[in-house]
Amino acid sequence: MSLLEIRDYRLAFDTFDGTLHVLDGIDLSLGAGETLGIVGETGCGKSVLARSLLRLNESPPARVTSGTILFEGKDVLALPEAGMRRLRGRRIAMVFQDPASYLNPLLAIGTQMEDAIRGQEAALGGAVRPRRAIRAEAAGLLASVGLAEPQRLLASHPHQLSGGMRQRVLIAMALAGSPTLLVADEPTTALDVTVQAQVLALIAGLVAEKGLALMLISHDLGVVTASCARVAVMYAGTVVEEAPTASLLSHPLHPYAQGLIAAVPDLDNPAHKPRGIPGTIPNLLAPPGGCRFHPRCSRASDICRSTKPVLRELAPDHRVACHHAETP
């Protein structure tokens, strides 16, 4: 049994202009200890999907219209709020993409970390530990993510830390509940390439050391390639291709995945000229019928305009949602 199973998951946002069909029939799975990258253009629904695992999209205007999210065999969408409090952080932890937005600028790092640890313990209904023990655990978590002088950092405020240090603090807070699944939503956004590499190496090391399953969300194919064994490509709220990373890079089958890879500069081949994908992402207030990519696709035919393709396996562990995927 997979650790995480997402089946036919659909999510909409009700706005003054109409209903935004943000996620449209997501099908994904993730096993214990596996690493899955999710890539796609900005606005394709990657972050919304990640937040859905913790039911952070349930308040209006968002609403689930169909589907199931099974984690360790339990339907996340059917859990009561008390059950979700035990799940969030303890079993599924999330690292958000902008630490400056998720760390309170008015509170010291130590206060925020202690609150996170106490919150996890309170969700389980255990005895409250002395503050000294909780602070020692917070310092240990900071040290585990490679931050020097953790006692000094506990007394610091977010503005006194660099972007990379703040991101490491968020990772440390995510590890406070000893989760089984770590969801990292654009964890290297706004970091320079050196710090980005350090944060990715840190995440990879923690995943290997603790046996975590990882869902890494990024619009950067290079980031996902360096960190994940499997990749799912999203477009306009749907998964259009899913495959082992090496297979996707060497032999993408969906026209959109082919376009993403063709748009990446090849530094080893100066003659290679990156090519953009014509057109723009669709308006999700009135998404195209059939395949959502067909208005931008050179292979589109009548069936693409009328019938939504389903994810089907065309090679070992390689699934694609395209009516013409076999076409050379």
Rank of each mutant, 00 (worst) to 15 (best):
5 E>M: 09
10 R>A: 15
13 F>G: 07
13 F>H: 00
15 T>I: 01
16 F>E: 15
23 L>G: 05
24 D>A: 13
27 D>K: 12
29 S>W: 10
29 S>Y: 10
40 G>V: 00
40 G>W: 08
40 G>A: 05
41 E>Q: 08
50 A>W: 00
67 G>M: 05
76 V>W: 01
81 E>M: 06
85 R>A: 13
87 L>H: 03
91 R>I: 04
92 I>T: 00
98 D>H: 06
100 A>I: 11
102 Y>W: 10
105 P>S: 09
106 L>H: 12
109 I>Q: 01
110 G>D: 02
113 M>V: 04
115 D>V: 06
116 A>T: 14
120 Q>Y: 14
125 G>F: 02
129 R>W: 07
130 P>M: 10
131 R>E: 14
134 I>D: 04
139 A>S: 15
141 L>P: 01
145 V>S: 09
148 A>H: 14
151 Q>E: 13
155 A>H: 13
156 S>M: 11
157 H>Q: 08
162 S>V: 05
170 L>V: 08
173 M>P: 04
176 A>I: 09
176 A>C: 08
178 S>G: 02
180 T>N: 11
183 V>Q: 07
184 A>L: 00
184 A>H: 02
185 D>E: 07
188 T>A: 03
195 V>S: 13
197 A>G: 14
198 Q>M: 06
202 L>Y: 02
203 I>D: 00
205 G>L: 06
206 L>C: 13
210 K>R: 15
212 L>I: 08
213 A>T: 12
214 L>G: 04
215 M>V: 10
216 L>I: 00
218 S>D: 03
218 S>Q: 02
220 D>V: 03
222 G>H: 07
224 V>A: 03
226 A>I: 05
228 C>W: 10
228 C>T: 10
229 A>T: 12
231 V>W: 00
248 L>R: 11
256 Y>D: 03
264 V>W: 07
267 L>N: 01
268 D>T: 12
268 D>G: 15
271 A>H: 09
272 H>I: 04
278 P>N: 07
279 G>D: 09
279 G>W: 00
285 L>A: 09
287 P>Q: 05
290 G>P: 04
291 C>H: 06
292 R>S: 13
295 P>K: 04
297 C>A: 03
299 R>K: 15
301 S>V: 15
304 C>G: 11
307 T>M: 08
309 P>A: 06
310 V>R: 15
315 A>T: 10
317 D>I: 00
318 H>T: 07
318 H>A: 11
319 R>E: 05
322 C>Y: 03
324 H>D: 14
326 E>F: 10
326 E>Q: 09
